[in-house]
């Protein structure tokens, strides 16, 4: 079996042992959904739609945000920071595997049990709001959604990996972590769909990578974007994916040059 598959399997086993924590953590991040139902029902009682969004598409948007936001997290990964600061990275450097792809495997493995927990708990919400959600039956839209999600997974990972590698140059990454934790919900569309923002903001946000980690894949599923917007979106997402991969590789190479394996 490939080394990466073994890493995924181990990560699944380790992650599954924290089920209770995952349940509470999922309940915490799904709270906005409960309040979103009440708020948006009141809003859409007064207006039929806001920038192509009606009540079902808005509720589905927030449901997908809750289901995907942890899997598509693009902030600093403290395990990588800890590996660099504690010297734990050394043990990976002596192994015949790539640290980057090892981390990808860990992320996949860690997210499988979490997604199952999220899926089961999310089903309760789906069951209670069956008639208020968008169900796409077009295969092409499912395919585009799947493609956008896979790209978003790697995009989020490269962002996360790149930010974490800053630990090579600084002992304190809390500033970056903090800045990301503040702006990420806004830039990724976690708080509001990007198309709800004023036009001037949208013009900037659609060219930043964070939008493609949540807002874009979800809007592809919902069908709230025009075909031109979808085409442009996939192009921008792909360009960011390639750029961030090379940035992450460069940071890794330069970081290793100054890495001193301090710690024990």
């Amino acid at each position: 079996m490939s080394a990466y598959l073994i890493i995924i399997r181990n990560a699944v086993a380790e992650s599954a042992s924290y089920r209770l924590n995952q349940i509470v953590s999922f309940l915490t991040i799904s709270l906005p959904l409960v309040f979103a139902v009440f708020l948006w029902k009141t809003v859409f009682n007064q207006v039929d739609e806001i920038t192509n969004f009606d009540l079902p598409s808005t509720l589905t948007y927030y449901l997908l945000v809750v289901l995907l936001q942890d899997i598509l997290y693009s902030g600093v990964k403290w395990e990588i920071v800890d590996d660099i600061h504690s010297g734990g990275l050394t043990k990976w450097l002596t192994k015949p595997i790539s640290y980057l792809w090892m981390q990808v495997s860990v992320r996949i493995g860690t997210n499988i049990p979490y997604f199952l927990v999220a899926f089961i708990l999310g089903s309760v919400f789906v069951f209670l709001n069956l008639n208020r959600l968008v169900w796409t039956t077009e295969p092409i839209r499912w395919l585009m959604f799947l493609a956008a999600i896979i790209m978003a997974f790697f995009l989020a990972f490269f962002l996360s990996f790149g930010f974490s590698l800053v630990a090579f140059w600084t002992q304190d990454t809390s500033g970056i972590e903090f800045a990301i934790s503040i702006f990420l919900p806004l830039l990724s569309g976690q708080i509001l769909p990007i198309t709800f923002f004023p036009k001037e903001f949208q013009a900037i946000l659609v060219y930043l990578p964070w939008r493609y980690t949540l807002d874009f894949p979800i809007q592809v599923y919902l069908g709230t974007l025009s075909s031109v917007q979808i085409g442009t979106g996939f192009t921008v997402e792909f360009l960011w994916l390639v750029a961030l991969y090379f940035i992450a590789k460069t940071l890794w190479k330069n970081g290793l040059n100054i890495y001193q394996a301090v710690g024990g």
Binding site: L39, T42, V43, Q46, S181, I182, P185, L186, I191, L192
Partner: peptide, 25 residues
């Protein structure tokens, strides 16, 4: 700054909503 940003975002959130509707409930 962190504490204030969350508060400012909440205000922004409702300002965006109120650009579409005159009142909420």
């Amino acid at each position: 700054i962190g504490n204030l940003f969350w508060f400012i975002f909440s205000i922004l959130f409702f300002q965006i909503l109120f650009a579409q509707i005159p009142a909420i409930g």
